[in-house]
Design a protein around this nucleic acid. Structure first.
Lengths: 223, 223
DNA sequence: ATGGGACTAGATAGATTGTTCTAGTTATTT
DNA sequence: AAATAACTAGAACAATCTATCTAGTCCCAT
């Protein structure tokens, strides 16, 4: 009835490391099994397919992401922006250890699989939402209602995109400096930004935020 | 003597699309051949291995990146920041067409391959340098020597990381809005930023920029 | 016109992949 | 003690992968 071994957990952990290090397709089932010190019999006892293993990896990550920025984790840090970047510092450590417990830089995998594996695409979308919401709620806390929600959401998206891109570069070149450079700059920009919130709202001469949003999008397409 | 067919070019083009859409390992040689309307005989006539094909894709991209932000391309746009984002708008269109001619979102591939394929890692590093230099020189143009070079380089890194992350998300979820949201916000942040250059330099209380840089890095590690 | 280099064609090899299968062990329940 | 369920073991299979091989066609220079 109750589970009697930690093999399932070992497989998930091994997979999350290998998927991140080598990508979904390159990380073979055999390699995962070997790293987890299991056998294919055990593997297919717990997971019907390799795809289901990736889904389990994603599911476990969501919980960890939610906890990453929680006040209990960084009790001493009051300022929400600083708590955000403190959490990203934890991420940095994971990166250094070659782990990917938070599944944050997995857009790469998703791009690899979204066409053919709709369940994984959905799972990834869910992870993305969790990330953006976590960041956004920290930004809201720091904004004290001064900035509108729409702006905060796009900023959360930007922050996550930047973190993901920086993590990928760091992984690709085995060099955490690349991650640090981008994040230090990001920190500066995010910190210096609330002051000109008013300015940024209408920097294109428009006044109503949603319309300005529309126009800005238009600009992209026009070139 | 001189080449007599465009097969090589067709193979490079097909590969750049498939590598981007499916990743290096998933994009099989056969699929590339089929898409390029070639045969394996032709393939291995031009490229000793699949890896060499990817290297050719990277090599071609470098030239295109350099041209992307050139003044001739956007003759009417004088402001360098606007020229930067105009170039990124071109990128956006390529994304919409499923192409990856500029090899910009290929950190994903690199992460997939850097361990086992050192030549590709080096090729990717070169593409990264080209990108960062291109962005940095635009930023320098716009800064009129007011901001120090170090800051501009980290900012260029951040911009590229954000663009890459946003592109990956857009590809993963087949939704360009994700790209737009991040880039609109990035535009706002980069635009609003030169004013507080002085502030951002020493925002942690340090004065000498390199030292401040060191300390900021320290902060990451401390958590 | 002919020799030679550039290129094409596609069958095939050899390795690797995800998955299945049968037979087993271990622990818990009755 | 026997039965049942949870789990393990690893050989084997079918599909797919990259790369090779031989035999060709096409075009240009001599």
């Amino acid at each position: 009835m109750a589970e009697r071994s930690n093999t399932r957990e070992r497989l998930i952990r091994a997979a999350s490391e290998l998927f991140w290090a080598e990508g979904y397709n390159r990380a073979g089932v055999n390699a995962i099994i070997r790293r987890a010190e299991a056998t294919s019999g055990s593997f297919y006892h717990f997971f019907p397919t390799k795809e289901d293993l990736l889904l389990a990896v994603l599911a476990r990550a969501e919980g960890r992401i939610k906890r990453l920025f929680s006040p209990t984790e960084f009790g001493k840090i009051i300022d929400p922006t600083e708590r955000l970047f403190a959490g990203l510092g934890v991420l940095r450590q994971e990166l250094g250890r070659g782990a990917a417990e938070f599944c944050f830089p997995m857009a790469a995998l998703s791009a690899e699989l979204s066409d053919t594996h709709p369940r994984i695409r959905d799972g990834m979308a869910s992870v993305l939402r969790v990330w953006v919401r976590a960041i956004q709620s920290l930004l809201e806390e720091g904004a004290n209602g001064i900035r509108n929600e729409r702006d905060l959401k796009t900023e959360a998206h930007l922050i996550f995109a930047a973190v993901e891109g920086a993590a990928l570069q760091a992984q690709a070149f085995q060099n955490l400096d690349l991650f640090d450079e981008s994040l230090i700059r990001l920190h500066v920009l995010v910190r210096s930004q609330p002051d000109d919130a008013e300015f940024s709202e209408g920097f294109k001469g428009e006044f109503e935020p949603p319309v300005q949003q529309e126009n800005a999008t238009q600009d992209w397409r026009s070139w």
